[in-house]
């Protein structure tokens, strides 16, 4: 099979994954919308009636993950390299990492309720990737030809996926916190975990991935030393990676050492995550530094 064929196959796999994500999205939406039935008065609720819809959502999510994985791998085969050469490829791999982080957290912490926001976020990412960011499969420019590409970019993408997941949970925390301070959760949110569980989960994810992000930055520095002659040069991308690092370091200190909990910690986490997103979207597309590999 030729490179072009592999590239087409990759595109089909990604389209299929998007269909599956859409089904997962609908299934989770049904689960959330109809999950709670008032059995009698206000006290008794029936949470079990949309269980099957939720199960369907999870199955679709796992299948979609498999198709997305295939899409990313085929893309790599078509270009004879790791599939991280332009922003389209960063985006599909980022969506893969994000879904992977969700499935991992689902297996460890029972957070199926996150399926709905995850499905929405992934569909948006893939939709933008395939319509606006898409570029034909091509070899790498010389500066990207290095083993460090695989190491640095995979660490950064996985970190990004987990950061976004932590952001989703922190945002949920803030929304539910608002409801609770105004007198109570609406019925659809009754099934969601307690606030301190969300708070703790956000912290777990950040603490888990912070060393990986640190590693991504350091691996980038080592690579920059061999490609550009300096390990740190305050290139816009480097600067924002540093800002993200500092923001998450502040989050961890605030939580562990000073003992911030809840609302303040969630806002700080959202802020840190938004610096990552800003770096990915703004600096990649409109930035001027040396990290302009978006291919746009």
């Amino acid at each position: 099979m030729t490179s072009t064929n592999y590239a087409y196959l990759s595109n089909y796999a990604i389209y299929s994954a998007m269909v599956l994500f859409t089904i997962a999205f609908i299934a989770h939406a049904v689960e959330v919308a109809f999950s709670v039935r008032n059995v009698d008065e206000k006290t008794k609720f029936d949470f079990s009636r949309t269980k099957r819809s939720g199960n369907l959502g999870t199955v679709m999510m796992v299948l979609a993950f498999a198709f997305l994985l295939a899409g990313v791998i085929l893309r790599g085969i078509s270009a004879h390299r790791v599939p991280w050469g332009n922003m389209y490829e960063f985006s599909i791999t980022g969506a893969l990492a994000f879904t992977g982080a969700y499935i991992f957290a689902l297996w460890k912490y029972k957070i199926r309720w996150l399926g709905l926001p995850v499905a929405i976020a992934v569909l948006l990412t893939l939709g933008t990737a395939i319509t606006i960011l898409y570029r034909p499969s091509a070899p790498l420019v010389p500066a990207l030809k290095s083993t460090w590409l695989a190491i640095h970019v995979s660490a950064a993408i996985i970190s990004g996926g987990v950061f976004l997941l932590a952001n989703c949970i922190a945002a949920t925390y803030l929304i539910l916190d608002r409801y609770e301070s105004k007198g109570g959760r609406p019925t659809w949110a009754l099934k969601l975990p307690a606030l301190d569980v969300l708070d703790q989960l956000t912290y777990r994810l950040v603490a888990f991935v912070f060393p990986l992000w640190t590693f991504a930055v350091i691996a980038g520095a080592i690579w920059a030393e061999s490609a550009w002659g300096r390990y740190w040069g305050w290139d816009p991308k480097e600067t924002w990676a540093f800002i993200t690092w500092v923001a998450y370091a502040a989050y961890l200190h605030a939580r562990v050492t000073i003992g911030w909990r809840g609302r303040k910690a969630a806002w700080l986490c959202l802020f840190a995550g938004s610096t990552f997103l800003f770096n990915y979207v703004y600096i990649n597309i409109w930035g001027t530094g040396r990290h302009t590999y978006s291919g746009l």
Partner: peptide, 26 residues
């Protein structure tokens, strides 16, 4: 710790203008 945290966040904010305006060193 509180001062250290403020300084840490401040360092992050202080790095921003360097990514907006062109830098002589680069």
């Amino acid at each position: 710790m509180r001062t250290a945290l403020i300084l840490l966040l401040l360092l992050g904010f202080a790095a921003i203008p360097g990514s907006i305006f062109p830098q002589r060193s680069q």
